[in-house]
Nucleic acid binder design. Structure first.
Length: 527
RNA sequence: CGGGGCGUAGCACAGCCUGGUAGUGCGCACGGUUUGGGACCGUGAGGCCGCAAGUUCGAAUCUUGCCGCCCCGACCA
């Protein structure tokens, strides 16, 4: 990180000395406002260094920071507030589809993890293992692991909970009357990744994992697809993020699954981000953990399983999908603060006068369910606040000063378009409620337009290699073999993101081998 | 695990080549002037210069070893 940030940070540090002569640029916004933007505090530009831009935005918008523990982040209050809003919305959707929350242990005995063979193999390489249960004073100072406190059996810190949960389900499921069993858990998990990035890939992360058991294959598949639908709806309606729904190729399938469904989103740098997965697990786990039930015909059967999850990676998707060079852009539905009101005053008397006008607006907005902050903090000046709330992605900003009091107006600024205009105070709350909806829609439409502009049908290998460098989703024919997929990955770093659920049959030739193909699949480089 | 880079104040860095008062900017504290797009001036606090050993009269600086972090690859939600 250090090497990369030198340019950016170094630049800011030089600024004060050069302030007088340093060029600033103005950009005239579409509606009325003119922005004067001093570059001194600017973020790195997306166009120049996307990943540095991402890292800086996460830190400077106070979302998260690297902790003292390798690969693990501290999610800061502002970032966590966004995550909580995501949790709330998702949790409501889970409940509405009949699920209940429960909690299972952090530790998975090694013998449990071993039981489903593919599952074990898939996760073995990235497990944190607890081998001892006690420390003792080290004669050379500090503490040491007590060699006498070795665990009989190692405990794995859950990389996912299928094993513990299906071991539990064995005791919960006896009859078809016990099914379906629809459980979700919110928790943290650990996957020992080689390289980590805030929110996108951390050693420990927060997620939710749904684990359901069903009496029939059809029911389980229906559940898998239902939850994929929930994820897609959440992504589109809340994150304002258009997603492709599809199936993973066998190579990319979850370890232990018969079929993995996913939602895939396109980020502004042209890379794909897997944003959620829903797995049809067949009877694999029921067999591994001996979960049988008596069906209506009084016959013993193995239960059918699904699991599905989304993680704090969604925060990464949220940031990368919408934000700009001024900072975060939050969809109103997930913004911890939807509206900020900034008074512009010189004295306590002026502030008091402003507040008499602001108070009813605050009340009206709160009554309408809008989260609004009146920032009369005297320690910062208004200009500083403008920049700060832009950095933090607050969707709507109102500024009100003495000029407005005289004119009976208020300045309304939109974060998504960076426009501002002056409006009458009269009826402002109602206007804002409508504006928040408009912003939510606009952000989604913008992201959708971006994805459409960056989705390409490609039919030749040369075109493919060329386009993959430029980024975006590539729709291409594939012969359906793992070998071809592997070779394409080796040559281009592109993977099959998904086989779209809504793809129509179309005869064609595999872009790599020329073998016959019935359908286009989606290729991209991915996070 | 392979290849690069870096550890000096809360943060970002300079100083090291050529050994001898520990420096700059941001931030922080106090005071004043300011306040419609990241204010300015003044004063001040803040350091085991990653750790250990060595060379030397003397080490942030030279040597050796260790530890940690970051970036690029392989692995992944």
């Amino acid at each position: 990180m250090r090497a990369v940030t030198v340019g950016g940070i170094g630049m800011y540090c030089l600024m004060p000395r050069l302030a007088v002569s340093f060029p600033f640029y103005m950009h005239v916004s579409a509606a009325a406002g003119v922005w004067i933007e001093y570059m001194s505090k600017a973020l790195p530009k997306r166009s120049e260094n996307y990943s540095e831009w991402y890292n800086e935005i996460v830190k400077r918008a106070d979302l998260a920071e690297n902790s003292a523990v390798r690969g693990c982040m501290v999610i800061k209050p502002y970032g966590f507030a966004i995550w909580e809003k995501m949790q709330r919305a998702l949790d409501d959707m889970f409940k509405a589809t009949g699920h209940q929350n429960a909690y299972f242990p952090l530790f998975v005995p090694k013998s449990f993890l071993e039981k489903e063979e593919e599952h074990a193999e898939g996760f073995a390489k990235e497990c944190a293992v607890v081998t001892h249960y006690r420390l003792k004073a080290n004669p050379e100072g500090g503490l040491m692991v007590d060699p006498n406190a070795k665990l009989e059996e190692e405990l794995i810190i859950r990389p996912t909970s299928e094993a513990v949960i299906w071991n539990t389900y064995k005791n919960w499921i006896q009859s078809w009357r016990d099914l379906p069993l629809l459980i979700n858990q919110w928790c943290n998990i650990v996957r020992w990744e080689m390289r980590t990035r805030l929110f996108l890939r951390t050693t420990e992360f927060l997620w939710q994992e749904g684990h359901t058991a069903h009496a029939t294959e059809a029911e389980a598949i229906e559940e898998t697809e239902r939850m994929l639908g929930v994820y897609a709806t959440f992504a589109e309606d809340w994150i304002a993020l258009p997603v492709l729904k599809g199936l993973k190729s066998p190579n990319e399938r979850f370890a232990g699954a018969i079929e993995t469904y996913c939602i895939e989103a396109l980020m502004q740098d042209g890379k794909a981000l897997q944003s959620g997965t829903s797995h049809f697990l067949g009877q694999n786990f029921a067999k591994a953990f001996d979960v049988k039930f008596v069906n209506k015909e009084n016959q013993l059967e193995y239960a059918w399983a699904t699991s599905w999850g989304v993680s704090t990676r969604l925060m990464g998707a949220l940031i990368m999908a919408h934000s700009d060079d001024q900072g975060l852009v939050l969809p109103p539905k997930l913004a911890p603060i939807q509206v900020v009101i900034i008074p512009i005053h010189r004295s306590p008397e002026e502030l008091a006068a402003i507040y008499t006008k602001v108070e009813p607006i605050l009340a009206e907005l709160k009554a309408a369910g809008v989260s609004v902050k009146f920032d009369d903090d005297d320690k910062q000046r208004s200009g500083w606040k403008f920049a700060e709330y832009e950095l933090k992605g607050v969707p709507v900003r109102l500024a009100i000063g003495m000029r407005d009091l005289e004119a009976g107006t208020v300045e309304v600024a939109r974060r998504d378009t960076l426009t501002k205009d002056s409006r009458p105070l009269e009826g402002i709350a109602e206007h804002i409620v409508g504006l928040l909806d408009e912003i939510q829609t606009n952000i989604y439409q913008k992201a959708l337009a971006f994805r459409e502009e960056n989705t390409f049908k490609v039919d030749t290998w040369d075109e493919f290699k060329d386009q993959i460098e430029k980024g975006g989703f590539i729709l291409a024919h594939w012969d359906g073999t793992a070998e071809t997929e592997e070779k394409i990955k080796d040559e281009t770093k592109a993977t099959i993101r998904c086989i779209p659920l809504d793809a129509s049959e179309e005869d064609g030739k595999c872009v790599f081998t020329g073998n016959p193909s019935k359908m286009r699949v989606v290729f991209a480089r991915a996070y």
